[in-house]
Amino acid sequence: MADVGRFATQGRYVNDVAELQRDARSIYGDGKYERLVGLKRAWDPDNVFRLNQNIRP
């Protein structure tokens, strides 16, 4: 990765992150992450859709 890093663009592919809970805020940024948490609380407060790359409500 060190050899090809200079060719990479900023950002990460979310579905390829093993530990989304640990890295989610750094991937999305503070503003988007808080918005996603708010949406999750509003539309899926029981966390039914948790088997994907999950944002906890």
Rank of each mutant, 00 (worst) to 15 (best):
I27N: 01
P57R: 07
R35E: 15
I55V: 15
N52S: 11
Q21E: 15
D23K: 05
P57V: 04
V14A: 01
I27R: 00
R6I: 04
N47D: 15
R35A: 15
D16T: 14
N15L: 11
V17F: 02
Q53D: 06
L20M: 14
L20I: 15
R35D: 10
D23Y: 05
G31S: 13
L20S: 03
G29S: 05
V4Q: 09
G29L: 07
R22P: 00
L36P: 07
R56G: 05
D3E: 14
Q21Y: 07
L51Q: 09
E19M: 06
K32T: 14
V17R: 07
D46V: 02
E34Y: 05
M1W: 09
V37A: 03
R22V: 06
N54D: 12
Q53H: 13
E19R: 13
Q53L: 03
G31M: 09
A18P: 00
D23V: 03
T9D: 11
V14K: 00
N54E: 12
L51C: 04
G38P: 05
Q21F: 05
N52C: 09
G38W: 01
K32Y: 08
Q53S: 10
R35M: 14
G29N: 09
R56W: 10
Y13I: 14
R35L: 15
R22D: 03
G38D: 13
R35Y: 14
G38V: 02
R25L: 08
V37N: 02
Y13H: 12
G5I: 02
R35C: 08
K32H: 10
D44N: 05
R56N: 07
L51K: 11
L36Q: 06
R6G: 06
A42N: 01
G11W: 00
A8D: 03
Y13V: 13
K32P: 01
L39F: 09
G5S: 06
P45L: 05
E34G: 05
E34K: 13
Y13E: 08
S26A: 10
F7L: 15
K40G: 03
V37T: 07
A24Q: 04
N15E: 12
G38F: 04
D16I: 06
G31L: 12
D16V: 03
R22S: 03
V14P: 00
G31N: 13
R41N: 03
Q10S: 12
D46L: 11
G5Q: 10
D46P: 01
A24C: 11
P45C: 08
R56Y: 10
K40A: 02
G31T: 15
Q53R: 14
N52Y: 06
N54A: 09
Y28P: 03
V37Q: 13
G31K: 14
L51T: 06
P45D: 04
N47E: 10
V37P: 00
Q21T: 11
A18F: 04
L36S: 02
Y13F: 10
D30K: 11
Y33R: 05
A8K: 07
